[in-house]
Design a binder for these strands. Sequence first.
RNA 1: CGGGGCGUGGCGCAGUCCGGUAGCGCACCUGCUUUGGGAGCAGGGUGUCGGAGGUUCGAAUCCUCUCGCCCCGACCA
Length: 476
Amino acid sequence: MAQKVTPMSEDYSRWYTDVVQMAELADYAPVKGCMVIRPYGFALWENMRDHLDRMIKETGHVNAYFPALIPESFMKKEAEHVEGFAPECAVVTHGGGKKLEEPLVLRPTSETIIYHMYAKWVMSYRDLPILINQWANVFRWELRPRLFLRTLEFLWQEGHTAHATYEEAEEETLKMLEVYRVFAEEVLAIPVYPGAKSDSERFAGALRTYCIEAMMQDGKALQAGTSHNLGQNFAKAFDLVFQDKDGETRHAWNTSWGVSTRMVGAVVMMHGDDNGLILPPRIAPIQAVIVPIYSSDEDRAAVFQAAETLKKRLASAGVRVHIDARDQHKPGWKFAEWEQKGVPLRIEIGPKDVAKSQVVLARRDTKEKAPIPTEEAIALLPGKLGEIQGDLFERARKFRDEHTHVVDDYEDLKKIVEKGGFAFAHWDGTRETEAAIKEETKATIRCIPFEEGAEPGRCVRSGNPSKQRVYIARAY
RNA sequence: CGGGGCGUGGCGCAGUCCGGUAGCGCACCUGCUUUGGGAGCAGGGUGUCGGAGGUUCGAAUCCUCUCGCCCCGACCA
């Protein structure tokens, strides 16, 4: 630590990398494209994971674990799936000192092995639905890795369900997208646009893909979660059939949905500033850090006693508190370090405070700092954390709204995505137009919203009739 | 896979053009003074100069090969 991060305005990419490393969220591993998630980063991920896990369980799902090694032949059973994932698969060819008869793929996602197993477990409509989630690592051989955003191995949850009808599968797909929206907005304080992906952005093997799209502070889009209605594509490839009420044998309908450690990157890019990370209180590993200030031994003892008492009382009020008891650093150094690490609230206690039964409270996001009577601080702190959570979301939403522009002119669209921001424009719905836009602007159709912009118009690129507006932006 | 940059104490770098005792900052250790926004002084330890060959009396420096990483562009959560 003891260094400053590159200012966001100077170089956004470097700012991001600096923040991640200086906050000790992650570090580069010896293998290119791999990273180590450090304890502080992992604590953050655990908090995110625990919230989401609860939400997934509350919607009726159970956790299980499927293996990371998948027979290569499985990956080839669903045509689109093979084509989509083949280039980024890592393959194990040797084991036990011998060349394997059949190579094993390190899962890039687990549809194939999971539906193979479901096929064994399902006989009748009474066995449906199957609502399973797993927390796992997956591997995708990315050519251009970035900490948390794109690494060869990453952590995620993947839900895989099987249903008796199309309608039920579609309902499940949308239900989980909504879970993700709530998770992003209420837990991570990241506002998102939910919607559907265009055909060319669809998951390999899915009927339809839905997503939530967030806007980072450089105006680029980040896909924060996806939910797929897989139709019967995998059921057909893996003989996942059941006997229905009427005695007929039918293929099941599947869905899958996932959120990954990429979300950690989203939190960094969404809320951070030039002093480092800013964490939403709901997921911050430490919500309030107490920095004791002292010079003489007597002061030190008195200050620490006050700090310990305060810590106990706050902890019993449900606040995650940490006392920075290190002797080797001066208070100013500690202030800077905890700011880099994004701790929402800092509590300073010095001899003057002890004498007056007060503490100094400082907010990470607004930099506000003021003395406050200790009793009052204890009473108001949980609420303060909630207020910060809300303010972060509002600030992010304001930023996003200010950088989302309704456009009807192609030149305007080019300028907007170049500068950083979302264009909300009409699109004729064709693959050709989408490809042309991408070619000419490096921006893609991020999502087709469910309701907003559903009025007829003319495609911003082709001039052909359009049924509705879509979000277009450059993306991570 | 194309373009660019870089490998030298734990970290960040200088030294390489023009070969001649391997240096600086930070960090670390000890001591004293300090402590309300990244402390000061004194003392101390730290290197197969990414690797392999070669040229030379002598290579971090020159030559050949090689490995790795980072950044920017085409694909992806």
